[in-house]
Design a protein around this nucleic acid. Sequence first.
DNA 1: CTGAAAGCGCTTACAG
DNA 2: CTGAAAGCGCTTACAG
Lengths: 347, 347
Amino acid sequence: MVTSEQVARAAGVSRTTVSRVLNGSPRISPAMRQRVHEAIASLGYEPDVVAQSLVRQRSRVIALGLFPQEAGLSLSELGQTRHYFYLDLLKHIEQAAASAFYDLLMPSRPQNASPEQYIRSLHTRRVAGTVMLGLGPGDSRTQALIQADIPTIFIDSMGQGKRATYVKSDNADGARQVVEHLLTLGHRRIAFIIGQTMDLPGMERLFGSQQALAQAGLTMDPTLVRACGWDTDNAYEAARTLLAERRDFTAIVAGSDLMAVGILRALYEHGLRVPGDISVTGFDDVDLCRYTYPPLTTVRQDRRAMGEGAVQRLLSMIDDEEEEREPSPLIVPTSLVARHSTGPVAT
Amino acid sequence: MVTSEQVARAAGVSRTTVSRVLNGSPRISPAMRQRVHEAIASLGYEPDVVAQSLVRQRSRVIALGLFPQEAGLSLSELGQTRHYFYLDLLKHIEQAAASAFYDLLMPSRPQNASPEQYIRSLHTRRVAGTVMLGLGPGDSRTQALIQADIPTIFIDSMGQGKRATYVKSDNADGARQVVEHLLTLGHRRIAFIIGQTMDLPGMERLFGSQQALAQAGLTMDPTLVRACGWDTDNAYEAARTLLAERRDFTAIVAGSDLMAVGILRALYEHGLRVPGDISVTGFDDVDLCRYTYPPLTTVRQDRRAMGEGAVQRLLSMIDDEEEEREPSPLIVPTSLVARHSTGPVAT
DNA sequence: CTGAAAGCGCTTACAG
DNA sequence: CTGAAAGCGCTTACAG
């Protein structure tokens, strides 16, 4: 490894000057700057980020924290069907972070770490900030991060502090749109197979659905609402159970696209046609929607706006040492994408 | 942040002793050890990993490098359907790394970085080693990593050196199994819609298929082989084209499960039944296979063995300073999983 | 505009 | 078995 010492020697200056040139200090003569840049180029020098992190007391790294704490690992969760959407979101987070020259880190956290240990592990790595994806409502890391004053963006869970805020889709409005779509098609008895009501997206989507029904003078039939968990097979099982019990509904609203995949399968096994017999809707608009039978009507979440907005807010919290004003949350609009899994109610 | 200085003061010893206790040095009296541990616990001390990295000249971080260089970003690629399998593999890599207290890093690499820049960026971050997933055969990073002597595991591409080796499935044998399965069911005219022949998995799978056909006294009809790329919609388009041209085949072997999803869709749109009219097979055995119509016959890749084997090999390269013997590649066995997308050839 | 010196928080020969 | 001192590769007041 080439060090700044060697560059200094080659350019006939001090390490101080090399450092100043690198960090764009204004008080450097053009000639000097030129000389140093030449030495850097010819030696192929690149500053040691570890040493920089030590002296600056901060590394150019953003830690990722994913999903309920109990799950333990982070990436390991992404393979589950329920998280395909988050994967897509992560892509935009990475792109935005890379543009600002930040690395993304998946810290190897001990299995049953306490909130204090978690914070310490972030401090010890000198991370600049964190992005927390899909934490549960009672996750102990939320308060710990806020109190520790570590710049943090929560995605799909709430959290607000001097250096923390959150980003989410307008879930309620998305659910409202999809239910109105079904109402327009003449559906009146609608079943809801949803993920969970205790987390933010689940709760908001259910709320939006209720609103849409209410505006049409309808009420939600609690016996047609099944909160089963977010995975494909959770939804598959829930749909099977529902179908075994009754058939007095003409549409199923799923909590997510991947849940809809499981529901479509259950309907198929029961010999029901979509949308001929039953209409089905998803939520998220993942790529796969175009390849289901039939292509899925769903609600699009704008991952780009979410990911870029999250990183932009995070970076400004990191750079904003004065912490004058509290950051504000970002609510991203959603939009209905009508494909072929919904149709007029059977006459 | 609590420092080792404070711990030393609290325990009435030197920083040297604190460091020795932490690193399990043998020449420390039990009483001393005890005293230091108490101070550590009561102060909630955790060593600064950045400072450790600087002095040890190596951080406890494994860098991830994913997919062809041109793609640029790493996570961003995982959202594409063709990489769902790798995501699942990554989960086991993360788990194995975490057990050894290594973090995973996605370095923010400049867009068109040269191999030299890439190596420098790893050196500057003092990464302990790298795991490279699915590099193309001509990827310039391969030779650069080998020559730079950075401990590296290539997954699904080849690369061998004093501190580098590779891990892959026995793709050829998997392909052989699936083709033999079709032959047993009476299929003789089989189409192949595959990803690419230039990368390792694509090449090996095609080779295995040819072998199986040859053993049955058959030859592969080149006009029935379509190398279209690894994504779901690539396969969908290739299947549509093929079906528009001809129907003189009774089975389609797909390069991956997600490709099979696209093929199933094309067959459905052409009014063909699976497996009644045409049998279809996948490769990988991702979760989704159980939810296709019909559930997909495929070849299982053992991601756990691949992921754990990769990390275990990497760690031993990292720890093995003497570099006596070259590491050896790991070839993981594959197995046929017969579901319902294959059946006897129509009579 | 430039440099000598101190310091970030650790580890590790070198002495004792 | 224990500690004082040097050093990892940077940055940044402090002087000039």
